[in-house]
Design a protein around this nucleic acid. Structure first.
Lengths: 230, 230
DNA sequence: TTGCCGCTGACATAAAAGCGTCATAGTGTG
DNA sequence: CACACTATGACGCTTTTATGTCAGCGGCAA
């Protein structure tokens, strides 16, 4: 039930429109006129979603979006870009900003709210303890169960956390060090090779359903979890 | 990537142990016997992490840690405190020194390295690498994947780095020496001819999609990566 | 034609990942 | 309390993959 939205736009009129639309939808709205203000508000209280104008005075929206993606505190906050015309939208889309969606101005309040809610819905399961599903593999933290289709899968505690980590950070390589951070926590003083061992155990548990191919080795770098072929 | 560690401890034996452990882990180790020496070394070349003994002659480790936190040059450098017994650790922890971690003596080299790496990892910026696209060729460092259109392309680690280098420095000739610098780093002593071999391997991997023509030879100079014709 | 220069396949070596096994610590049960 | 069982992490050995060097070949340019 997240609902804190941060609007970053230099035009007060746009902000007012957005604020009104979000308020109608029972969403909490904060405002910033530029990236500096935005940054301050984020530090004070991280929002659940950021609406970001493509054109901003100072640091451009595109650059700021990238920065948000880079920094640990903000990298998991979804971003929706606001663009002036559809051709700008194309540009932005091509720029690989990591934005979760794009809204073209002018937009209707209805559209805005719909998209915001859609993104929140999509992202919410990741932050909460909701079940994760990737390519027929289902992991549910609340019941602590894993299954491939109908087949239940038994995992040790560490393998469970490992798989959880992978499924919530799929489609990207993780060095053994990062895996240690994510699964063992930064209090662990464990040999990096140990990751290999648990990878093997995890794969072993997944082979019965043929899903071990999701756990992919990226030689010289680390591991990746992906439903795509290797 | 970062690896410069400064050890500040008045006991040469401890320093030797630390130096050895760090060297094994391929970390660059500098040493200082007190805060004055340490300060000089930091000014000369700021390290990426500081290992600081709790008890130091002159300015105590705790005080020095605070000072490091206060000064602009050093405030972002992580500090790990070395303490003699666990009850000292408790004390230090309570003293709000701003240290990033604590290691209790005696410590094993393994533990030392593990903690150092953990802190470095935590502090290290999340790789801001973005996907590069040139003429239908896509290389994404975060997922560590390469594809030509829809076709995935498999590369060895070196070929991957080579292609990454080319794509981020496209449309210009690179001598073999430059390529060695960019791809191998100036730490390696590798024959220039080796570049040829990896060029061939890269081309081989690209021929299936016909994109090997992007890797162009500039006779007498070196190589160029370009989507334009040769 | 000649002589660099780049291309190529083969090979030895190095590095990385995979795998089985073991000792240990923790947990639950009789 | 003792026993059995599980989970875990460390080793060390094996297999796989990557890397760098070399020597011969062939083409391009003067």
């Amino acid at each position: 039930m997240p609902g804190k939205i941060l609007v970053v736009d230099d035009e007060p009129a746009i902000r007012a429109l957005v604020r009104f639309a979000l308020k109608q939808a029972d969403l909490d709205c904060r405002e910033a006129g530029d990236s500096v203000e935005a940054q301050a508000l984020i530090l004070a209280d991280p929002p659940d979603l950021i609406l970001l104008d493509w054109m901003l005075p100072g640091v451009s929206g595109v650059d700021y979006a990238r920065r948000l993606r880079r920094e640990r505190l903000t990298q998991s906050i979804p971003v929706i870009m606001l663009t002036a015309r559809s051709d700008e939208e194309d540009k932005v889309r091509g720029l690989n900003t990591g934005a979760d969606d794009f809204i073209t101005k002018p937009f209707s309040p209805r559209e805005l709210v719909a998209r915001v809610k859609a993104v929140l819905r999509r992202v919410a399961p990741l932050s909460a303890d909701e079940a994760v599903t990737i390519g027929g593999l289902v992991l549910d933290p609340t019941t602590h169960r894993v299954s491939a289709g109908a087949e239940p899968i038994t995992l040790g505690p560490t393998e469970f956390r490992l798989l959880h980590f992978f499924m919530t950070h799929a489609e990207r390589v993780h060095t053994r060090g990062r895996v240690l951070d994510g699964v063992w926590g930064n209090s662990a003083y464990v040999d990096e090779r140990t990751v290999d061992v648990h990878i093997r155990r995890l794969r072993k548990a997944l082979t019965a359903s043929g899903l071990d191919r999701y756990v992919q080795t990226v030689r010289g770098v680390g591991y990746r979890f992906s439903a795509k072929e290797d």
